[in-house]
Design a protein around this nucleic acid. Structure first.
Length: 304
DNA sequence: AAAACGGGGAC
DNA sequence: GTCCCAGTTTT
């Protein structure tokens, strides 16, 4: 959960997740739908799918005993393998996360682009050389903590840094310029027109295909263009909001579609969706856009 | 090697 | 707005 996600953001999900899946066996035995539902809202859903796969492997083959076994599990890369090997197994492997990259970049005055694979390899070697091999877990956590509490990204607190006198970046007065990160993501603006189709307390949701690259198998509001022409013609806009994902900046426009009699509402047939009441909506993975839209619809209807 | 992946908090 | 978070996988 902590991969590319702030600790504070992950904690409530972590607590609910462990309540729902209290053991590796429980997680391994659960359907993927339930795992995704518990993860819904936290993002980077490949983490949930990979964790689920890893739990199945561990349930089948037993816990990993060495660094290579840990690294071989799905969803576990260089950083997480190092963290598990050092903290859980006491093995001498560095754990280089974003915090540690920043600390090493500054302490050594290294201005390699930390977005490059070469720099990651380079920093990994430096971290392995610095590692306290007698207490690798404590060392790694100390490095991460230094980055999280003192060697801050925008405003490092060098005055209270225990290694300030060894810091080449500080000596050069370049601590704020490091680490160097060249890659910039270009964001696109996308408008999303979504249809809120209700039947009593129920809402019609469609399921994203399993082959979708993003948010596969998640449920969401249908797009307005999926409405049949007659239903589309009677849509009324009920609100809009913004939602940013990795490279897309969505402007979401929410439309209420009205049915008249028994006419068909959608262009698709058979419908790749179904009606959900509020209890059923808690049992499937919903996209955050959909959660926001449903919340917004309640607000708009309550206020007007 | 670069792009994709979700979302939110800090500034 | 921009940056980036206890990164990994896919292209």
């Amino acid at each position: 959960m902590l991969q590319q996600t702030r600790v504070e953001a992950a904690i409530p999900f972590y607590e609910r997740f462990l309540e729902r899946f209290p053991s590796i066996g429980a997680l391994a035995a659960a359907p993927e739908n339930d795992v995704l539902t518990a993860w819904s809202g936290l993002g980077y859903y490949s983490r949930a799918r990979n964790l689920h796969k890893a739990a199945k492997q561990v349930a089948e083959r037993g816990l990993p005993a060495g660094h290579a076994d840990v690294l071989a599990l799905p969803g576990i890369g260089a950083y997480t393998a190092g963290a598990i090997a050092s903290i859980a197994l006491g093995l001498p492997h560095a754990a280089v996360d974003g915090n540690v990259m920043r600390v090493i970049s500054r302490v050594t005055g290294n201005d390699s682009d930390i977005g490059s694979a070469a720099a990651r390899r380079e920093f990994g070697k430096i971290a392995d050389a610095l590692l306290d091999r007698a207490r690798p877990g404590d060392f790694n956590q100390a490095m991460m903590e230094l980055g999280a509490m003192v060697c801050l990204s925008r405003a490092p607190v060098c005055a209270s840094c225990p290694v300030a006198k060894f810091c080449a970046g500080r000596a050069a007065g370049r601590e704020r310029e490091l680490p160097v990160k060249l890659r910039k993501q270009a964001t696109r603006d996308v408008t999303l027109d979504l249809a809120l189709v209700t039947r009593g307390e129920q809402v019609f949701l469609v399921r994203r295909a399993s082959a979708e690259r993003r948010l596969a198998d998640f449920w969401e509001l249908p797009a307005k263009r999926q409405l049949a022409d007659s239903a589309d013609a009677r849509c009324s806009k009920i609100g809009e909001f913004r939602h940013q994902i990795v490279n897309d900046r969505f402007r979401v426009i929410l439309w209420r579609a009205r049915a008249s009699g028994a006419e068909r509402l959608f262009n698709f047939d058979p419908a790749p969706g179904r009606w959900f009441d509020s209890a059923e909506r808690e049992q499937v993975p919903l996209t955050t856009v959909t959660k926001k839209a449903l919340a917004a619809a309640n607000i708009f209807s309550a206020s007007g």
